[in-house]
Amino acid sequence: MTLRLRPATPLDASRIGVILHRFEQDTPWMPKEHSLAETISFCDRMIARGWVTVAETAHAGEIEGFLARDGAEVCSLYIAPASCGRGIGKALLDRAKQQVSHLALWTFQANTEAQRFYLREGFAEVRRSNGQRNTEGLPDIEYHWQADQMETTT
């Protein structure tokens, strides 16, 4: 599969909204707090701020995942369920790493797959919270990546 990474456009809001909403709906430990329309509206706001990069198949133009980044903060990284394990998340994260020297993000403590992924991609755990800092009320973990750390270890 050949991927193309590009900035999201307003026409992508519904396609990335479905990916994000599906994660909420299909993940047993996630509170079910948002309608699909609310999720699409949230994605539209991230796109309008210029935060979102999408990964799409080069031949079919299907969006397989997206990353939203506000400066050095990764706000969202989600992959369509059928596309997980194909290097799409890594490609999106690698693109973000090329654009800044430091990244920070939070992931839920219950999301052990994301934790393994971020550790494998060179992130280090900074701290944990009890869930009071996020709207879902779920305990989470803050991770940081620093470009110069990777250069000294490779």
Score class of each variant (00 low, 15 high):
N111C: 07
T2W: 05
Q98R: 13
D140E: 15
F117M: 01
A48H: 02
L138H: 07
A82W: 11
K97F: 00
C84Y: 02
V54I: 12
E56R: 05
R127L: 14
I16Y: 00
A124W: 09
G61Q: 08
D140S: 15
A104E: 12
F23L: 01
E64A: 13
L11S: 14
E151A: 14
G137F: 13
P28N: 03
L5Q: 03
G61I: 10
A82R: 09
D26E: 15
T53H: 10
M150H: 14
W106P: 00
S35Q: 07
T9F: 01
R49S: 13
M1L: 13
A80L: 01
Q132N: 12
Q132H: 13
V126T: 09
I63Q: 05
D12R: 08
P7G: 11
F66N: 03
F108T: 06
T112Y: 00
T39R: 15
L138R: 11
R6N: 08
N130C: 06
R133S: 10
R127I: 04
A104Q: 10
E125T: 15
I63V: 15
T135K: 11
S35D: 06
E38I: 03
E151L: 15
E121Q: 15
N130H: 08
S41C: 04
D12V: 06
G61T: 10
A110N: 14
I47V: 06
E24I: 00
F42H: 08
A110C: 12
C43D: 02
T53V: 14
Q146W: 10
G71M: 03
V52E: 01
W106F: 05
W29Q: 01
I47W: 02
V126K: 12
Q99M: 09
E38R: 10
R120V: 00
K90H: 11
N111M: 06
T2Q: 15
W145V: 04
K32I: 10
K32Y: 04
E24V: 00
P139N: 10
L119M: 09
L5H: 05
S35E: 06
L77D: 02
E142M: 13
A147H: 11
G50A: 13
G17M: 08
W29A: 02
T154I: 08
D140T: 14
R6W: 07
E33Q: 15
M150W: 12
G50H: 11
L36Q: 14
A147I: 02
A124R: 15
E64N: 07
G131L: 10
W51V: 07
Y118D: 07
L5Y: 05
A80F: 00
L105C: 07
K32G: 11
T107S: 14
Q98D: 06
P139R: 12
A68R: 04
I19P: 03
R22K: 02
C43N: 04
R128M: 04
E151D: 09
F42S: 06
R128Y: 04
R120Y: 05
R95Q: 06
G137C: 13
A55D: 05
P139E: 05
A13Q: 05
G122L: 08
V18N: 03
F117A: 00
M30C: 05
F42Q: 09
G50L: 13
E136W: 15
S76R: 08
N130A: 12
K97V: 02
A72C: 08
K97R: 09
R95A: 02
L105S: 06
T2Y: 07
F108A: 10
A91W: 03
I19D: 00
S41N: 09
V18G: 02
R15F: 07
I40E: 13
L92T: 03
C43W: 04
N111S: 10
T135P: 13
